[in-house]
Design a protein around this nucleic acid. Sequence first.
DNA 1: CTGAAAGCGCTTACAG
DNA 2: CTGAAAGCGCTTACAG
Lengths: 345, 345
Amino acid sequence: MVLPMKRATIKDVAALAGVSSSAVSRSFGDGTHVSKATRRKVLAAAETLGYRPNALARSLVGARTGLVALVVGRLRSPFDSLFVDALAESLIGVGKHLLLSPVRGDQRADDGLMRALDYQVDAVVVAAGTMSPEVADRFARMGVPLILSGRVVDGAGIDCVLADNAGGAAKAAELLLRTGCKRIAYIGRGHGAFSDDERRRGLRDTLRRLGLDIVAEARAAVDREDGHPLGMELLSGPDRPNGIFCMNDALAVGVIEAARDLGLRLPEDLAVVGFDDIPLAAAGSYQLTTVAYPIQPTVAAIVETLEDRLAGADWPSRVIRIPTRLVVRGTTRRLERAVGTRTEG
Amino acid sequence: MVLPMKRATIKDVAALAGVSSSAVSRSFGDGTHVSKATRRKVLAAAETLGYRPNALARSLVGARTGLVALVVGRLRSPFDSLFVDALAESLIGVGKHLLLSPVRGDQRADDGLMRALDYQVDAVVVAAGTMSPEVADRFARMGVPLILSGRVVDGAGIDCVLADNAGGAAKAAELLLRTGCKRIAYIGRGHGAFSDDERRRGLRDTLRRLGLDIVAEARAAVDREDGHPLGMELLSGPDRPNGIFCMNDALAVGVIEAARDLGLRLPEDLAVVGFDDIPLAAAGSYQLTTVAYPIQPTVAAIVETLEDRLAGADWPSRVIRIPTRLVVRGTTRRLERAVGTRTEG
DNA sequence: CTGAAAGCGCTTACAG
DNA sequence: CTGAAAGCGCTTACAG
């Protein structure tokens, strides 16, 4: 039986290589202030001992931990999991690791944020929950960058990355109008959720410019499962809408199911437009027209902002809007004059 | 403008409270060996300074880090993201934090595992990638528990948690047979993926016991997007199968799309059974019959095993099989004698 | 119960 | 280029 073996430390390597621990440390650092010969000896010793620097001890000295926390809610929508996946992968690319700080119940991201601080994270990305001013302030004072995903909050040192919600909603509204919808409804999350609010207002403002208004609204969580009952409700009433803009694709898919259960034809009786462009939107059974919110650019903007901040950038705060793109599929009617093109900016 | 403020340390608290750092440390520890009065003073001082122990420094001394790494691939299937979500949440419940170690391309989980080790994780859950014996051995020698999710690998100190794949596949096979399917195909991942292999064999063995065999097989990744072309291929041939068992629900949904594109009626012309029971399987548009692989018990078993190991349990290795359950929906024909019941064990 | 001291594994000025 | 020393923020025996 093999006895539990302690991890090799810098001292072990120094001893084997016949040098000081300083030399070992330098050999694993930027490689400066070490002779090639010393470095070679050190690396060889490290190899035989299977030595790898202890990231935790290293960060105690004042260097960065390489840890970035993500405060996130339930991974319900496919969009969320794709986002987490892309972020984790992207961070590895810049030598950082993602620490998950899940929060539930829509409330206090504060707990997750404070836990992250205990681990001396280099930065925190907040994608869910609400943040108290006290906690935000604390991050600012400690110089830990805070990046909000999907919402804008004013505050020194707080950067925000999110979709051009109003623009995307306007595109959806215009498409619905131009394809003949007059009674347009909105289904969203409600309760003051940031992106939801912006999308609803984007729709409303565009409609109002033409003298129309949202004819009905429903609020829910953001699941496909929630979309179904809300769709049923909205579509069973007396003054049925003939167009529905949904806060996201997951809800839209639920609405489509509901429309089918009611025997409505899409897009003849009802047009549906979603938001996100999750993979399922392209599935044959849904063919959902939607406002694409691309994940790669979003994650890239987050990581870039994060690196700028860690490099010392000290602008008061930055808001990056990710452009959206209308993807026209089968749940909306054809434009009278549209020919051939399926996607438009 | 507020100057960046250093985090309060144990010394700051000790000074303010007028005690030694030892006293502070004890007050934040198990609370033993401190008088109530001292403790109260310390906690008050900590409160005013906003002090919280540095988790990293704490773990340097030899205690645990509270970090658990998850080596995971792309979060493609909804099952994966639900799993990550449940695991992260469950770990918070026992005071641990999930560090994401994403790996790509199906290969070397080794990189992710070694990175995890650099952060002195208390344990690692491996849900993707292949692991070299050297790395597994290293974990064993260092006494860091390794828990495999979804696969069995022999090795000292390696525990495994996974579905009762053979049993689940047998249930699927029996249902297909009892509802009249004679030409049964399998669509899976191929390339020796562990669970895929077990499910395929479970199907084959059950069929063989009745003198039948799998009439066709297709290999793919595990996406819905992959299921479609494979379904097309399998269903366009001369000797079309009338029953397909898919390695997971995502693939099955793609197959359903393909069947529809070909004008096949489900379940009359073709029966489809999946595995996992993702939320989408219950959607009106799919109504997929599937072998449910429940996530909560799986995650619970993982966390429990992890805690047992950290508590010093030293059995050589443990394999936990999570029972599956057949959920009968619309993609399979009705049993001749079945009445009323939609779910059977 | 309490504090001074040593030490966890590293890095970083500081001399040489 | 190189090493001895101090120190990062904590905990843990060890005396008192």
